[in-house]
Amino acid sequence: MSVLEIKDLHVSVQTDQGVKQILNGVNLTINEGEIHAIMGPNGSGKSTLAYTIAGHPKYHVEGGSILLDGAEVLTMTVDQRARAGLFLAMQYPVEIPGVTVTNFLRTAKTAIDGEAPAIRTWIKDVRGAMTNLRMDKSFAERNVNEGFSGGEKKRNEILQLELLKPKFAVLDETDSGLDVDALKIVSEGVNRAKENTGLGLLLITHYTRILRYIHPDFVHVFVNGRIAEQGGPELADRLEDEGYDRFLVPEIVN
């Protein structure tokens, strides 16, 4: 049984104005097979949490720890984290010139598994996953994310999620910019990945609409770089009705 534990995580970034504190003691434990939704206002630090888990060099960890099955993730390089079983579906996936999707997927799969995938089953897996995500075959020969629309980039993230089979995935606003049809397709992909591998999910979102398709076990309200409240799925509905004002008030008073 895998578990991802985030303990008292403090993170800052270097800005032109100096060091800016963003995460102020995040505590969160995700077990294999669980879905945790994180909701919170713009700028509250959700992406910072996601990038810190993945190891983006811009984010400086001031304190705390992230443990994957007891092993300290914070001392691992970015690629080691991925090979250990962590995956980040990015809010803004990056374009990679000169590298086709096919080539990229094969290289990533080989890196993660430590050996090249058997060619025939791999091609079948890739085709199948692309078909399920309604991605045209032609994407395979295009350069990664280059000229992809916002929605196509998100599908490409979920394609990787399905093929790379991580233990834990962080989905940073995978739902933003998707129309209803795309949202369903992408959600199905996430649910399929979970059924197939039993992965644990940290789903960052602003809206409850994706939660109609991907059902969270826990909902966390993220404000000012920490979790302000947690509950079950009903908390999401309450947030939708009430917004975040309730959580923001103390901050204004301070």
């Binding site: 390089t77 991925a82 374009e95 010139p97």
Partner: peptide, 24 residues
């Protein structure tokens, strides 16, 4: 950012550069 993206998929820095240049 491109390097980070490739590394976040398990690819080492060395391999990432090779992949990009080779592809190009």
């Amino acid at each position: 950012e491109q390097l980070f993206y490739l590394q976040s998929r398990g690819i080492t820095e060395e391999e990432a550069r090779r992949l990009v240049v080779r592809g190009f």
